[in-house]
């Protein structure tokens, strides 16, 4: 452990509180998480250096620990940005395979956990009703749900339109498919040049042998 045990434990305790606070408002995610009871997932972040063990509990919470000396089902190692990419990925399994994370053990609990986190659907109504009463709480929850739903849809739409404008209208950068074709052509050209170089080398060697004869 590089950081002091007190700071490391404080960070993990705060993270655990935040995660379980969000889970408490998402009963569906808690039920799914409870199915992972007994699994241990180790996250080793190399930059910034930080390790944490995730232990789902039977009550659908997530126990976070800085030290775990028992067996580990899944261990993932990588930089903070690589973990952020996994957390925000629409296809966690593909990101795990193609990304910059190294994986030891069984990947299934990790992809399942990532799917649960990505699908976290927070129900704002219960705490609002508890605090504001049935009528006002329900009205505010409906308004918030609408706002979040609008924000999510608007965000997706904006991203799609921006993508289209940048690639197709303004031609600021080539589309992903074109770029991949270009990289593929460059790779093929590189291989062809290597082959040509090898042939030239062989021809030069043969000429040198003929000259000696």
């Amino acid at each position: 452990m590089i950081v002091s045990p007190t700071l490391h434990t404080a960070a993990i305790a705060a993270l655990e509180r935040a995660v379980n606070g969000a889970l408490a408002l998402s009963p569906h995610s808690r039920r799914e998480l409870a199915a992972l009871t007994g699994r241990v997932i180790a996250i080793d972040c190399t930059a910034p250096p930080f390790s944490v063990y995730l232990l789902p509990t039977a009550s659908g919470e997530l126990d976070l620990r800085g030290v775990h000396e028992g067996p580990v089902d899944t261990r993932v190692r990588g930089s903070g940005s690589a973990f952020a990419e996994l957390a925000g990925s629409a296809d966690p399994a593909a990101t795990l395979v193609n990304g910059e994370l190294s994986l030891e053990g069984n990947s299934a609990p990790l992809t399942e956990l990532s799917r649960i986190v990505a699908g976290l659907d927070v129900d704002w109504e219960a705490p609002l009703v508890d605090t504001l009463g049935d009528v006002a709480g329900h009205q505010l929850a409906v308004a918030l749900r609408g706002l979040f739903s609008f924000g999510r849809d608007a965000g997706r739409s904006l991203a799609r339109q921006l993508d289209e404008f940048v690639h197709e209208e303004a031609r600021l950068t080539p589309p992903r498919a074109e770029l991949e074709d270009f990289y593929s052509d460059v790779q093929a050209l590189g291989l062809a040049v290597d082959r040509l170089g090898a042939r030239l080398e062989r021809a030069r060697a043969r000429l040198a042998r003929l000259g000696d004869d």
Partner: peptide, 16 residues
């Protein structure tokens, strides 16, 4: 902070 000291103790206990 005593809660953090105790939490670290539990982590190091290896109790299962």
């Amino acid at each position: 902070i005593h809660r953090l000291w105790k939490r670290f103790t539990i982590e190091l206990s290896g109790v299962r």
